[in-house]
Structures are given as C-alpha cells and as structure tokens.
Simulated scan of single mutants.
Amino acid sequence: MLTADLFPEVPRLAPCSLCGSRGICSTCPRCELRRKLFTPVTQGETEALNQWWAVRQQEKAEGDRRRLERFKRFSTLQRPVRLALLGCSAKKAASPAPAESLYQGRFFRTSLLYARNVLLADEVFILSALHGLVALDEVIAPYERSLADAPKDERAAWAWRVGSMLDEKFVGLAVEAHFLAGQAYLPRVDSTTWTLRVPLAGLALGQRYRVLTKAIQSGVPL
C-alpha cells in the first residue's frame, strides 16, 4: 500500500556510495559532504554572500571605469603607450600601504625614480609574486612570497595570468613596455600591438641597480 509523503519538501537522500547510509553518518567523510550539500543556507550566510557579490560588482565597475579612462587618455598620444613594469621587493613596510610605499627595497625605489623621471612612463605597474599586477596606489598588506625559487610551472602560470591582466588593461592600444625586474617576473603578453623592451636582461641585481643609477644621473633612458 502506498503511504502519503508527509514532508514532500524535504529531499530524500540516495544511499551513500561509501557507507550505504540513507541518512547522514557522522563518521563517514562522504556523508559529511552530503550534509554540507543539503544543509539549508542561514540568513547570515546569505547576507555575507550578497555582500561579497556587491563588492565584486563594485570592483568590476571600477575596473571598467578605469579601463575606459585609460583608453581615452592614451588613444590621443599618437604613439605607443610607454609602460614601466617594476619588480616588487622583499623589503616591505610593516603594515598595509599603497604599493609604491609598501615596497621599500633599494632597487625598487631606484626603478620607480627612473620610470618617473627618466623614462617618463605614461603608466607604471608593479609585478607582484602574490597579487600579479599591482597599481602604485593600490593598498595591499605586506606578504612573504617570491617567484625566484618557484617551480617552473608556477612561474609559467603566473606569467600567463599577468600577461592577460596587462592585455585587458590596455586593450585596443599599442604599448611599449619597459621591463625593469628579474627574469622570473617576465609576463607573457600575446599581442601584436605590444613591444617589450628588457634593457637590464642578463644582469644581476647589483648590476641592474648600478645601470639604473647611471641612467638617472645622466637623464638618458636605457
């Protein structure tokens, strides 16, 4: 005889493929996954998810606004955008700060001075092992991570990710990028409108510092 389903709104679980239970077995790892799947979302979790989504939408809108402003500003140059890509530094401030203040290494400070006063870069970005591409005014917290000793596949994935970020920021524009960082931080940009210049290729850190210092003193870009 068929019996009425007293609780039709409650989903019926199929037997667990690991322990065979039709309910939730507290000692079964697969049942623990089933419990999470069928546990109703709380009001607090819903509100947190909505807040997260709102923040992501605001960030996207801000990114779109900056991208449009960048295109309008640089499309009238009548030449490629002169972009400086600086390497991050191990020496950092002790608390969150705008990126140009957070990184305190000697070579980073010298690279920034060169990019602004000698290269006269239209835009400057920092290549971060953790964050990828960082704007000078972006506030970030200190961290400990480097690509220098990272596995080859991790560096390759990072290079593609940062290359995509760069391509997205300068879509529709010709770019002359000046790479002023260690070889491990070289991004992979797959665009025919980009020219990548590596004036410090093959030099050790101390040599790169001396070359940039001389360029600053002479006022002649590399």
Rank of each mutant, 00 (worst) to 15 (best):
G206Y: 06
A215L: 14
A148Q: 15
A141W: 02
W194A: 01
Q183N: 07
T213C: 01
K214S: 06
E176L: 09
R197T: 03
Q217F: 01
Q217W: 04
G182T: 12
R145S: 07
S191A: 11
Y185F: 08
V171G: 03
W158E: 01
W160N: 04
H178A: 07
Q217V: 00
L180T: 05
Y185P: 02
A215R: 14
G206S: 11
G219Y: 03
K169N: 01
F179G: 08
V171A: 14
P142M: 04
S164M: 06
V189I: 02
R161Q: 12
V220S: 10
W160C: 08
E144S: 10
K152L: 12
D190L: 14
Q207W: 03
R145H: 07
I216N: 04
G219T: 06
W158T: 04
E176C: 14
A159Y: 01
M165S: 10
E176K: 12
E144H: 08
G172P: 10
R161A: 13
L203T: 10
R155P: 05
E154D: 00
A181I: 14
T193P: 01
L166Y: 13
I216W: 06
V211S: 06
H178L: 02
L212F: 08
T193D: 07
G219R: 03
E154K: 07
T213Q: 11
R197M: 11
E154G: 00
T192P: 04
I216M: 08
W194M: 02
K214C: 00
G206D: 07
E176Q: 12
Q207L: 10
R161Y: 00
G219F: 07
P199C: 07
G202Q: 09
A174R: 12
T213L: 06
G202F: 05
Q217Y: 03
A184V: 02
D190T: 13
V220T: 10
A156M: 05
E144Y: 05
A177H: 04
S191L: 09
A177W: 06
V198L: 13
A201N: 09
L173Q: 01
V171C: 09
A159S: 11
E138W: 01
L212E: 05
A215G: 14
A204R: 15
S191E: 06
R155Q: 11
Y143M: 05
L200T: 09
T193Q: 09
V162L: 07
W194C: 02
E144W: 02
P142I: 03
W160D: 07
Q183K: 13
V198E: 15
F170C: 03
D149R: 15
V139Y: 08
D190G: 01
D190E: 14
L173M: 01
T195L: 12
Q183L: 11
R161E: 06
Q217L: 05
L147N: 13
S146K: 04
P199F: 10
H178I: 10
L205G: 06
D149C: 07
Y143A: 03
A184H: 04
L196C: 12
V220W: 03
W160V: 11
R197V: 11
S146F: 09
W160Y: 02
Q183F: 10
V139P: 07
D153C: 04
G206N: 12
A201V: 12
A184G: 02
M165P: 00
L166G: 15
R197N: 11
Q207P: 09
V220R: 10
T193R: 14
G163Y: 08
R210Q: 10
L173R: 01
L180A: 09
R210D: 09
L196V: 15
S164W: 05
E138N: 00
L203H: 15
